[in-house]
Design a protein around this nucleic acid. Structure first.
Lengths: 352, 352
DNA sequence: CTGAAAGCGCTTACAG
DNA sequence: CTGAAAGCGCTTACAG
């Protein structure tokens, strides 16, 4: 492993001080054009790349942002959602010549939390936090500390937080309206996400509000945990309730995400129940699964990549202390109609 | 934003030099037990976290590893494969108190390549490279530079490289044998991956070898690009060849990955062709899609998370200059039988 | 045994 | 205008 080239090596080659070489590389006017060119040439020749540690120590800036994955969503790590967020972050970070650090939240021995160390050690200049539980006190502390943090999602109780998200209530309302208005469903089940996350609450509330608004009163809510297994379990309980030969007690199921919808759909299929004939099914997310099942799952496309990108741009505003916009940025969302709700999957997309 | 606490602050609180405080925190014997305790207490009280830049500069070690995503696989970023690798990396990195950096390969202006800068700037102590094309000269240069790099996959031409992978040839052979022996298929099509990647070549070779060994001579290979669309396109061409009323020219399709199998399966389903009755289908990867289609796709499970974890452990060996094991680590692979090959999906798993 | 300097690589603020 | 010191935060090697 070759010893790495420092500014001093570049400076020596040209015969100037490393301070001058630094300024030359920065294109500083006080260094003559001739010297600047010579230094740049020497840097190229030697393959000089500035030491990030040296630069970070001097400039008090790491040129890196971290993606924080809280413990509470450890089971979701390994999910395409994070990959989309990461892709968006990378785009924005590359534009700022910054690195992206992925910080899973292994608790550290001294009672601290990994991502707090990342911030305090200045390994990253700021963090993007996603999928945090409502009662996650570490996140609250992080936001309160004034370190640059942007949350993805809605955190109504964290009034100081800068965040980027979608309107889960309205999106779920659109799904329910569609089921009721277009497909005439009147007996609805909602399999919610975990209710210690705001998305779980919001999607449930959207379901309830839209049902009420449409005059649908035969309405049930059961809590799931966003996993395929919990979606399957919810449907299995539904089947168990039904006495033999009887039809299902519901004609539409609104799952709070696609994973649960996939689990539920599998159980329905194996039980020989016609989807959407007997029961219509809708999900939420559209990170991939919803497209490949049979029938395809009607869902709401969450713009995760864009959320990651915009959150990161807002984060750089915070880091650079530039005037930020509103505290919360809300992104539009699209309903994607597939076969599971009763729409013709080959029809033109959502005009609603 | 509160000014961050330095070692000097901790030292001042206790009334020792920062050098002494440093040693105390490190548990060095030459500092009295009493002072050590006092320094640790003060550090806790002040919320001291060592500056990563200061430490990195002094110790010439970043305590970070990078995951490199080459340009050639930019379209695969946003794929669960990377998330699995990342999860494995995080596990290993956490055990070493190291950060994980994700480096997408935006070309930098000066002709260099992003991940090379990451290495040369010492932002990371080493890198994991995955999905590199065979003729990727940047990767070759990186390996040749002697910087700590571990490759995921097989790179027979990079004889100096440390790598972790699976036996794609043997795994594909098992799939083909299964189709021929158990399900009696004799007219086989292989939709390969891109042939500028070793996995593309190896899986194709495995297909060809197993077919030859089984005496199957009605064999076709078409090149795909691992995308759902290219799998669909391959099957569409197959349908177009067939004159009306005639049966398909093949009775088994071996896709080089699940994404293409999903695309192909969709086309077959929409054309009203029975899978596995008329054509059996198998894929490769098992990152999720194969489990949720109807029928489920018989495939080979690639242990991506384990590959990421082991590659990272090997990388730390390199970084620490510890005696490494063999240059290449080969991980075992499992065939997962689902409905698309003709097996009963609810049967017990693969004993072959 | 212990105190405090030196230096990792960088860039800016200062002295001349 | 330009040369070179100072100092970011840390830890080890050295001097006493």
């Amino acid at each position: 492993m070759s010893k790495s080239v420092t500014l001093k090596d570049v400076a020596a080659k040209v015969g100037v001080t490393s301070a001058a070489a630094s300024m030359a590389l920065a294109g500083h006017e006080r260094i003559s054009a001739k010297t600047r060119a010579a230094v740049k040439q020497a840097a190229d020749d030697l393959g000089y790349v500035p030491s990030s540690a040296g630069r970070a120590l001097r400039s008090q800036r790491a040129d890196a942002v971290a993606l924080v994955v809280p413990n509470s969503s450890a089971h979701v790590f390994g999910h395409l959602y994070f990959m989309h967020v990461l892709t968006g972050m990378s785009t924005a970070a590359n534009a700022h010549d910054a690195q992206v650090i992925v910080s899973t939240n292994a608790d550290t021995s001294d009672g601290g939390v990994a991502y707090e160390r990342v911030m305090r050690s200045r390994t990253a200049d700021g963090a993007i936090v996603t999928s945090a539980a409502i009662d996650d006190t570490h996140i609250e502390a992080l936001v309160a500390s004034g370190l640059p943090v942007v949350l993805i999602g809605n955190y109504p109780h964290l009034t100081d937080a800068v965040s980027v998200g979608i309107d889960d209530v309205a999106a779920t309302e659109r799904l329910v309206e569609h089921l009721v208005t277009v497909h005439g469903r009147r007996r609805l089940l909602h399999v919610s996400g975990t209710l210690d996350h705001q998305t779980g609450i919001d999607r449930r509330d959207g379901f309830l509000r839209a049902a009420a608004a449409a005059g649908v009163t035969d309405v049930t809510v059961v809590e799931g945990d966003l996993s395929e297994a919990s979606g399957a379990a919810a449907v299995e309980r539904l089947l168990a309730e039904r006495t033999a030969g009887e039809s299902l007690p519901v004609d539409g199921i609104v799952f709070a995400n696609d994973d649960m919808a996939v689990g539920g759909l599998g159980v329905l299929r194996r039980a020989g129940i016609d989807v959407p004939g007997e029961v219509a099914v809708v999900g939420f997310d559209d990170f991939g699964f919803a497209r490949v099942t049979t029938p395809g799952i009607t869902t709401v496309r969450v713009p995760a990549e864009e959320m990651g990108r915009i959150a990161t741009e807002r984060l750089f505003e915070l880091v650079d202390r530039r005037p930020g916009g509103a505290a919360h940025t809300e992104l539009p969302v699209e309903v994607v109609r597939r076969g599971s709700c009763g729409c013709d999957p080959d029809e033109t997309p959502d005009p609603s």
